[in-house]
Amino acid sequence: MSRIPTYDYDLMEQAIYLPMLLTVLKRDLFAVEKGSFKFKRPYSELIQETMAVIQNDLAKIKRYLYKNNIQVERLKSDEAFTMYIFLYKGHEEHHNYFNPKLRNGVEELMQYYLLKQFKLEQKEKEA
C-alpha cells in the first residue's frame, strides 16, 4: 500500500510520462520536417506549440515536486518492465511499470495535449 496521496502520485507519474512524450514529439517533428508533406509548417507548428505547453506543465510539476521534497528516478529497465524509485518526504517506494502501460500512457497524453489546444481554440471562437 502506497503512502503517497493520489494527487502527488499523479504528479509523480506525470514526471515520468511528460519527458517521454516530449521525446516522441521531437521525433515526430523531425519526421515531419524530413517527410514529404505538402504543407509542413502547420504540422510543425502544431507539434512545437504542443511541446511548449508540455514543457510548461512539466516545469510546474518539477517545481511542485522540489518544493514538497518529492523525487522520481528511473532505477532500471528491461524488455518488459521499467522500475522507478519514488522518494516521498523521506519514504522510499519502488514502482514497476509494464512498458506497454508506459507507451499507452504517453499515447493518451499525446491525444489529450493535441486535442486540448484544438478544443481551447474552439471555445474561444464560440465565446
Results as ranks from 00 to 15, higher is better:
Tyr97Glu: 03
Gln55Pro: 06
Tyr97Ile: 12
Phe37Asn: 05
Gln14Gly: 10
Glu124Phe: 09
Ile4Val: 08
Glu49Arg: 05
Leu22Ile: 15
Val72Phe: 04
Leu65Ile: 14
Leu18Cys: 14
Tyr84Cys: 09
Lys34Tyr: 08
Gly105Ile: 02
Tyr84Pro: 01
Phe37Val: 05
Ala52Asn: 13
Gly105Leu: 01
Ile54His: 01
Val53Asn: 04
His91Ile: 11
Leu18Phe: 13
Glu45Asn: 13
Phe81Arg: 07
Glu93Val: 07
Tyr64Pro: 07
Val24Lys: 14
Phe81Gln: 03
Ala52Ser: 15
Lys119His: 05
Asp8Asn: 05
Ser36Glu: 11
Val72Ile: 14
Asp28Met: 05
Pro100Asn: 08
Phe81Lys: 04
Leu21Tyr: 12
Leu25Pro: 09
Tyr9Ala: 09
Lys40Ala: 15
Gly105Met: 06
Leu25Lys: 11
Thr50Arg: 03
Arg63Phe: 08
Ser44Gly: 07
Ser2Pro: 01
Tyr17Arg: 14
Leu46His: 07
Lys123Leu: 13
Lys34Leu: 12
Ser44Pro: 02
Val106Leu: 06
Glu79Leu: 14
Leu58Trp: 04
Asp10Val: 08
Ser2Ala: 02
Glu107Arg: 11
Glu45Phe: 00
Ile61Gly: 01
Pro19His: 06
Glu124Met: 08
Glu93Lys: 10
Ala52Val: 13
Glu93Gln: 10
Asn68Cys: 07
Val106Gly: 03
Lys62Ile: 09
Gln111Tyr: 03
His94Trp: 00
Ser2Phe: 02
Lys76Tyr: 02
Ala59Glu: 14
Glu33Ala: 10
Phe81Tyr: 15
Lys26Thr: 07
Lys34Glu: 13
Leu25Glu: 00
Val72Asn: 06
Glu126Lys: 09
Ile54Tyr: 00
Lys67Leu: 14
Gln55Lys: 15
Gln48Val: 05
Tyr84Leu: 02
Leu102His: 05
Ala80Phe: 15
Ser44Thr: 15
Lys101Tyr: 14
Asp8Met: 07
Tyr7Ile: 10
Lys40Arg: 15
Ala52Leu: 15
Gln117Arg: 15
Lys38His: 13
Asn69Tyr: 09
